[in-house]
Amino acid sequence: MPNSRRQFLGAGLSAAVAGSAISCGASNGASPWRFFTAEEGRTVDAICDRIIPADRDPGAKEARAVNYIDLQLTRPFKRYRKAYREGIAAVDAASRKKFGGRFVELPAGQQTEVLADIEKSSAAFFELILAHTRQGFYGDPRHGGNRNRVSWKMLGVPFPPIRGLERYDQPKVG
């Protein structure tokens, strides 16, 4: 946490109150994420990368689908928090069992094999992360994914579209 005791005193009473309250709200260990731990975030990122891989166009990793999922887990997806905690653990357990390493440590081919197993063994979690990855890749960037509108660029969908309206009464050239 950035605010040490010394900085506290330097900033005075009111700042101390506000400062501590504000930084507490953001605390999530050393994780850059809102809900995921740093480890979980890496695993989800890797899963997203397998679901929509990068090729000549960016994939779900570059689109930051993991950021979309993490953000939504503080909002309407709150109800899926448990499913994610357990599902991510299940993915790592399956990787260890099959290839003797954590999911993020495996080469892409083995990751795909693990996910294909998860699709059957933890179907509910797989359906969840599949849907959410697709949303984080193809959905609107305002929700934290589809960074720089990469999927829309891939599909050739101009944004924002140029679209006016015959709004004025003045005649135009023929």
């Binding site: 900085q7 900033a11 005075g12 009473l13 009111s14 700042a15 506000a18 400062g19």
Partner: peptide, 10 residues
């Protein structure tokens, strides 16, 4: 002074 104080701190 809460808000300005916090601002100052940050």
């Amino acid at each position: 002074l809460l808000a300005p104080g916090a601002t100052f701190y940050y």
